[in-house]
Design a protein around this nucleic acid. Structure first.
Length: 275
DNA sequence: AGCAGTACCTGGTTGC
DNA sequence: TGCAACCAGGTACTGC
């Protein structure tokens, strides 16, 4: 399930294949993913040269002079660079065909998404897409720190884990990394967001940054079907401290890891290390 | 306004 | 063994 490190890993893998390449065709085998794919993707994108591949939160933007394709991988989405004659699988919804590049022949950027929580949208030049309008800061920038979390959380009674996963607060922290960051910071995920001290939020923000940066360095978490664009698996999954470890001993203190549900999401934590 | 709940979707797992 | 029920999860939306 792609979280920010997976999307950033995808971006880095795709960038050298896409930037400077011209789109020769767009094939939509399914016109509605999470939302209908807008006509502009078919009418405007072919013929354009891709200038840049940007990530904002968990969205990828393929910028061209006439507008940008906006992609979200949902929870089972995958983007791969493939030879044009690669057989079509049942969940291969979109192909963006690419002209021959400086260092390789024609390729296709294939969007595969079994669960179809992903989307492919269009953003005209110079105008931010509405979906991006109300997003919080990127976690790996200086705009995100403990004071931001502390200020934004005053008076909030929802669980700190739900608060950390709120895209209006900070983007890109999904279920797995929220849980891992709270473990590293020693904070009980069920604690009310408004009842976490400024000092502990400083630790939490540091841990979010450290864990996300480390996961990116390691190529993202591999759970089930996540693959990088080149098809290789990520390696961070071996190092999860609490996620999916119900009943197993805490790697720090040996106490069995517990499982609950907060904000409709599976939550794992160590009752000894996290208060 | 804030928060809980719902919907979307399908492959994999569990339970009968 | 076969089938049904359930679960995972990002995010926009609804409703209290």
């Amino acid at each position: 399930m792609p979280e920010l490190p997976e999307v950033e890993t995808a971006r880095r893998g795709l960038e050298p294949h896409l930037v400077g390449r011209r789109v020769t065709a767009v094939v939509l085998r399914r016109r509605n993913l999470r939302w209908p794919i807008p006509r502009e993707v078919e009418t405007l994108l072919p013929g354009q040269r891709i200038d840049a591949v940007e990530r904002r939160a968990k969205y990828l933007l393929l910028h061209t002079p006439v507008g940008s394709a906006l992609l979200h991988l949902g929870m089972s989405g995958m983007l791969r660079i493939l030879p044009p004659d690669t057989p079509i699988g049942p969940h291969d919804h979109v192909d963006i065909a690419l002209a021959r590049g400086a260092h390789e022949g024609p390729r296709v950027l294939r969007f595969t998404d079994p669960r179809r929580f992903g989307c492919l949208l269009w953003q005209p030049p110079g105008s931010g897409h509405p979906l991006l309008a109300h997003l919080g800061p990127e976690p790996l920038t200086d705009a995100f720190d403990g004071d931001l979390l502390w200020r934004a959380s005053r008076g909030h009674t929802a669980a700190v884990k739900s608060f950390l996963m709120d895209n209006a607060v900070v983007v890109g922290v999904g279920n797995i990394y929220a849980g891992e960051s709270l473990f590293a910071a020693g904070i009980d995920p069920r604690r009310a967001a408004g009842r976490v001290s400024r000092e502990r939020y400083a630790v939490l923000a540091r841990e979010v940054k450290r864990i996300l940066a480390y996961a990116i360095e390691r190529g993202g978490t591999t759970l089930r079907d996540f693959l990088r664009p080149d098809g290789g698996p990520g390696y961070f999954f071996r190092e999860l401290m609490v996620y999916g470890r119900t009943g197993e001993p805490c790697k720090v203190c040996g106490t069995p890891i517990r499982h609950t549900v907060t904000g409709q999401r599976s939550t794992f934590w160590c009752p000894h290390c996290q208060r």
